[in-house]
Design a protein around this nucleic acid. Structure first.
Lengths: 346, 346
DNA sequence: TGTTAGCACTCTTTCTATTCGAGTGCTAAA
DNA sequence: TTTAGCACTCGAATAGAAAGAGTGCTAACA
């Protein structure tokens, strides 16, 4: 077990390293105001901490650097809870205050604000309302052979798709079709739409018109939509600011990964395993490219259903305290706003 | 004026430098099969070419490197017209062969293919049909206070926006409104919609219902949409492959710029000044960050109206011949496909 | 007169040696 | 248990020195 003094020293070493990015030496620490031990004493403790795996040396006669285990212990036990400035709070609140621009824009703004406040890279996984319910279906003919199918959900989300009309269909037929579809499918969750569309309406449609299959098929397709929410990444190039990423190859690894939507999604998709803020340090991330990075994630919800994730990607030497507080705060804010907004319209 | 031999030497110097990224020396050139002059002769010619500003030295005793003026002359006068492999042609054709996925996906694929074929960064400015005409306007109520406004154009493009309904409006009122709007605005080009919506319908609407302003305003807003087409960038990290971008600061400049949609748009927006492929070398680009890059653009059209742009961003030391051929080919292909697709539906 | 061989010169790159300083580990004294 | 002292290690910085690539110029050659 660690003595109090060891805890203290571990803490100030990591704090110092996070700020300076320089290996910290015993003499340097001893000079600090709140440290009253001599360099030699500190050296002894450092040696012990290193033996236990919390610290590392870059070479035999360098100062100490936190190991991954060290960071892990730090976030689990040593973190002083950060607090937000008033200006930060209002910045975050303002993102969702003005809904005029639409949800998508608001989410994108959230990503931008987050990266600006932290000067790390932010990732926001937009909400996917799988239990969105159909509010209205429309078919708008464009010309003799073509039409647009439109699905509006109870959250105001609109899916649309161009498709070819069956040969020789009449405007009256289309109207009939739309009526049937609306009659039978209003209120059906999007996730079930594909299934229900065939089950509920095939019979009816067949009675009223020929060539209904193409149309049904089309609607089923459009309802599929993207299986995941949209990804927004803010401050992609912030990683360039980090001194440990002076190396082109390292930057490249991370940049490449950020371009691969699928990988990013895998990394931050909401896991309902644990609620609250999650921290993944270095190799704790599955992604190879993340071995020098840390990822802080929190999911946000509508009601008690998690619908999306916000995350901060930075160097392992991250300001954990600040970022955790920020991410926690924003995710709660988003949960509140979205819940108020969407949970009422059922 | 340049002698034939000077032209020849300038050409092989640039060809060689494009391939190797190394300053090319007289001895190195003389050893090539198709060069029958001695190093000394070549040195003399090089000195002349340098004096005329086509070549530069990185330091007093280095080989020569093409200057910006050199590249400019090269693309204007020395370019051997490249040809495409069959596999490249089919790759390009295949992008637009299958329209099932929708236009947006196809455009995105174009960007991806382009960056993969060239191993540079590709930028595609999605089509903006400003003369799209309104086909249909819809208002779908979501709940008592909220509704979605939808505009469908003759190309099948759908704009939508959530908005707040005026207090105490009745479903019948909405229907009336939609009828008036459709009656008066069908066929109006999107670019004029904002204007016409007030001019044509205010009077009528006022007669039929209170609080029409909010609704009109909303439609006017939605019709504004994004003033520009959507941007797709492929192979953002390809720049890392270029040896002259080993430097983190240089990469950063370019990366930062690519994140700023507005800057990118300014750079590649269609200029109907010149048709065909345009090449901007280094500082010929307005953008500061581009001083070590070249940009090759071509716009594509529907009919004879340019609607979007494709571009390749690479180092000044770019394979101009290949890329120009490729960009030219793809832009024509896109023009053909889009013209066939959209020009019929007027 | 145009071309080429030869040579001195320049500048970068690479290697080696040296020094400097920050930091450690260990021992012994307080 | 803490601390002072000291030898030791290693990286970073500095300065030559040598190697190598390439040039410019001059003079000879065809």
């Amino acid at each position: 077990m660690l003595t109090d003094r060891q805890l203290f020293i571990l803490q100030i070493i990591i704090d110092d390293f996070i700020r300076s990015a320089q290996p910290v030496g015993s003499r340097h620490l001893a000079k600090k105001n709140d440290v009253s031990y001599s360099p030699a004493t500190i050296r002894n403790e450092m040696a012990d901490l290193e033996e236990m795996g919390f610290l590392e040396k870059t070479h035999t006669s360098s100062g100490r650097v936190p190991s991954e285990k060290g960071y892990r212990y730090y976030v689990d036990h040593l973190l002083s809870p950060g607090s937000l400035r008033r200006s930060e709070r209002t910045a975050i609140h303002s993102v969702f205050a003005d809904r005029q621009e639409g949800l998508e824009k608001a989410i994108q703004n959230a990503a931008t604000i987050l990266s600006e406040l932290t000067s790390y890279t932010s990732i926001v996984l937009g909400p996917k309302f799988n239990d969105n319910k159909v509010k209205s279906l429309q078919i708008i003919p464009i010309d003799a052979q073509t039409a647009v199918a439109i699905i509006v959900t109870n959250t105001g989300h609109v899916e649309n798709r161009v498709f070819s009309l069956p040969e020789g269909i009449e405007p009256a037929d289309i109207e009939k079709m739309v009526n049937i579809l609306n009659d039978r499918l209003t209120g059906v969750p999007l996730s079930e739409l594909r299934h229900k569309i065939y089950k509920e309406t095939t019979e009816l449609m067949r009675r009223h018109l020929r060539n209904y299959e193409a149309v049904l098929h089309m609607f089923a397709e459009a309802s599929g939509g993207s299986p995941i929410g949209k990804l927004f990444i803010g401050g992609k190039t912030n990683i360039f600011n980090q001194p440990e990423f002076r190396d082109v190859e390292k930057v490249r690894l991370v940049m490449d990964m950020m371009e691969k939507e699928h990988d990013v999604y895998q990394m931050i998709r909401p896991t309902d395993a644990k609620a609250g803020v999650q921290v993944k340090i270095g190799t704790e991330n599955a992604e190879q490219a993340m071995e020098d990075c840390s990822l802080i994630t929190a999911s946000y919800s509508v009601g008690d259903q998690p619908v999306g994730t916000i995350a901060i990607l930075g160097p392992k030497r991250m300001e954990y305290s600040r970022v955790i507080t920020l991410v926690d705060f924003l995710s709660h804010d988003m949960t509140n706003v979205l819940t108020r907004l969407y949970n009422t319209r059922s």
